[in-house]
Design a protein around this nucleic acid. Sequence first.
RNA 1: CGGGGCGUAGCGCAGCCUGGCAGCGCGCCUGCUUUGGGAGCAGGAAGCCGCAGGUUCAAAUCCUGCCGCCCCGACCA
Length: 507
Amino acid sequence: MAKKNETAISPTRAENYPEWYQQVIRASDMAELSPVRGCMVIKPWGYALWENISRALDDMFKATGVQNAYFPLFIPVNFLEKEARHVEGFAKECAVVTHHKLEKGENNQLVPAGRLNEPLIVRPTSETIIGDAFSRWIRSYRDLPMLINQWANVVRWELRTRIFLRTSEFLWQEGHTVHATKQEAIERTYMMLNIYKEMAEKYLAMPVITGEKTEAEKFPGAEITTCIEAMMQDRKALQAGTSHFLGQNFAKASGIRFQSAQETEEYGWTTSWGVSTRLIGGLIMTHSDDNGAVMPPRIAPSHVVLLPIVKKVEQNENVMAYTRDLAEKLREKRYHGGPIRVQIDDRNIGGARNWDWIKKGIPLRVEIGPKDIAEDAVYVSRRDRDRKDSRSMPKDRFVDNICELLDEIHTELYKNALEYQRKHTRDIDEKEEFEAFFTPVNPDRPENHGGFARSHWCGKKECELAIKDRLNVTIRCIPFDREPEDGTCIECGTRTKKGRVIFAKAY
RNA sequence: CGGGGCGUAGCGCAGCCUGGCAGCGCGCCUGCUUUGGGAGCAGGAAGCCGCAGGUUCAAAUCCUGCCGCCCCGACCA
C-alpha cells in the first residue's frame, strides 16, 4: 500500500502541460523518440490507434468512390519547381537525396559517393508527382472524376518537433482528385472535410470547428483551404485535418488536361486533402487527464480488460475459466463494425496492474473475483469516470449492454470536450480585452492563455500579421457557420459586417 | 536559427561547489508469501556518468570543443 502520488502522471496538466503530454505518451506506451532526430517509433498501443483511424477513414473514402494507389517516396526536384507558391511553402523543409552509394572512407567510416545527376526530394506531400501521373492518365472527360488516395509517410524537415504533433516523418493519407468542373471540385473539397469532421467527432470524440483558412494560412498553391480545428486542454488550437480546392493551379503546373464533351481542351480542377498521425496527438490532448491517456471507445486499441482476482490458489482455475468464458462472450459482440476487443491481464502485480490500464486509457476495466462469480456479476470501472467510481453489475447485463456502455463513454467524452471548448471561447470586441485574453497570467508558463476568441476582422492581411507578430495569435479559420454581424476589426477598428473569425494560439 | 534549462542504470534523480570504490527511489529478474485499488520478505542483474580532447598520481567532478534533448521565440499538418 505504498501510495505515492495522487495522480499517475507527473507533472500534471496544470503544472507543466508540454511535459505532461510527453509523460502520458510514455506511461501509456504509445510511442517513443527515435535515435533519428525528430522522428518517432510508434509502439503497438499507439499504432493500433492509427490502424483503427485509418480503417474507418478508408471505408468512408471508398464509400464516396475513392480508390487507393501508391506513388513514389522520391520526387525529382524539378517537379516541385512547377508551382511557384508550392515551392515557397515546402522548399525550405525538404529532405534531399543527393547520392546513391556509400563507400568506405577514412577510419572505415561510410561516406556518400555516386552523386546523382538530379537530386531527389523525399516527398513532403505528393501533389506534383501525382499530378504528373494524372497528366498521363487523363485524356477525356470520361476519365473524370479521378478520385485517388494514398496512405503513406511524408517528410518535412522540422526545426522543432513534438511527438505525434509535429515530427520530421509522419504517417498520413493524402487524397488527390481531378474534376471536369470547378463546382464539382469544390463540392469534393467540402465532402472530404465533412468526412474529417465525422472522424473527429464520431470516432475521436473531438469536437471541431469547420471553416476556411485565410490567405495567410492557406496551403501553398491552394485556392481555398478548409480545415477542422480542435481545442486542446491548454486551449491552443490544433489543425486536425485539411481539405483544399486547388483550382487549376496544379493542373496547369502538371499539364492535367482533358477533352470535354464539347471537344474543347480544358484544364482539370483538382483537390487534395489529408489527415495524419497528428490526430493521435489531438486525441491525447483532448481527453487525457492527470492519470494518463483516455481512449475514445470507437478507436481504442482495446475496449475492455478483464482482471481476474485470485485469493487462494485452489480458486485460481475457477476464476480463470470464468474470465476466459466472459472474454469469449464479449468477443462475439459487434461494436461499430468489429468485434469487442478484449484483453485478459492475469499478471500478479497487485494494484499496479489496474494503474497500468488506467494509464493506457482503456475504456473499461472489469475485475472478476470469487465474490463476483458467486453472484454471477462483474465489477466494472469506466476510464472516463473517477477511478473509485466502480460498480458491480450482473455479468449478463454487462455483456448485453457493453456496446451501449462504450457509446455512452464516447458521448460523455465528446460532451466534456465540447463543454471545455465552449467555456474557453469568448466573443471579444475590445482590443484591450483581446490582448489580455492572450497574455499569460503566469509569465513562467507562457503556454497558459485564454483560448479561442471570436472577433471581427476587416479581412486585411496586415491586421492578421500584426496580431501574429504581437501576440503569436493567428486566425484559425473563418467558420462556415458564421453569421453576418456588424462590428469593428479587432486590430484596426475598420467597420465590417462579415461576421466573426476564430483567433487562437496554435500548434 | 536566437534565448534559457538539462544530459549519471529502463524511468525519476543525488553526487560535481571542495577530484579519491558509481549511488538512491521506482521499475526489471529469481524464490517464497500474497492478491477486491500503486503488495511483503530475501536474493540478483543492470552504467562509455552525452561525445572528444586536455589538466592530474587520480576526473562523473576542473578546463576546452562538440553533440543531443526539453522549454520559449521565428516556421509548419
